[in-house]
Design a binder for these strands. Sequence first.
DNA 1: TTCCTGCACT
DNA 2: AGTGCAGGAA
Length: 346
Amino acid sequence: MSKPLLTELKALNFSQQVVAWYHQHGRKQLPWQLSTGQHKPYHVWLSEIMLQQTQVVKVIEYFDRFIKTFPTLDDLANAEEQQVLALWSGLGYYNRARNLHKSAQLCQQQHHSQLPQDLQQLIGLPGIGRSTAAAIMSLAYDQAEPIMDGNVKRVFARHFLIAGEPNKSSTLKQLWQLAEVHKEQHEAAAYTQGLMDLGATICTKHQPKCDQCPINESCQARKKDMIAQYPAKKQKVKQAEVDLYALLSVDGSNVGLNQRDEHSIWPNLMFLPLFESAETLLNAHADAQQHFSLTHKLTHRILQIHVYLLKQPIKSTAVQMIDREDLINRPHPKALIHILNQHDNH
DNA sequence: TTCCTGCACT
DNA sequence: AGTGCAGGAA
């Protein structure tokens, strides 16, 4: 059977057009997708949690490493949280890894080591909200449930000319209602994946490829030539600047790390000992030398990290001298890698 | 450099 | 309404 031409697809309705476009142009070779089209729920779940915060290219390497280490949901549930966090190191938003681990244990205990096949039960698991639950229902179980992630918000805001800021509750309500109206009963997985792929590859924020869009003729923002104005811009977050003083204790290939407080930034992750001022750092370690400074941005803070070098091991009991080769087994934020790389270049 | 995106929890 | 990390694009 020959592929239908784009012009022939115009007779179809919104969701049918998205499905048809998916069969021609959507992504079907991602590591969490099986050629049969029936994807493993555990794989879909893991990929969706990672994709909440990271683009596909970056997720792929982490996903493969995860599945290699934890081939099944039981393997994940049986793991130590520190090992899960270690595998998550560099991805950011570490609570998602903690919730992933907790959810795996809940599934093991309450759902016979399976991901539930029910929207509300999925939402009941930590780390799974309405959109992620719907994505799992669609992609893993082929059940028609509307999703509303960042890509889909953009597609809907443009196509149906929804003006408000996408994260405002009134706007969200409109968007979810549209998603509900336009959900696809017969090919839920193809429709959901198609919507996401359409947003990611065609209906992009900058320079959308409207000429390749299967639903361009009914797109209201395009009709008004106002695509750049949709969706409305979010209010930007204020980032407070914070100065931190980090002690880099180096002894051969070992560096001194301690586990961070559970209420601090990067809770429970391994990092260099931090001080609030140069004075408190030097008070505790008089031999430390000012080394370099770098900027690291978090969601609501811009960290100016001033690194002080100490060319000897730290004796404090809270600090462990850890071989850099062993970092792969220890949870740590990306900032640690940036600091060590910069140290190597000095 | 500056701007921007991501989704769930509290 | 405030919070969490990192990276990609303009």
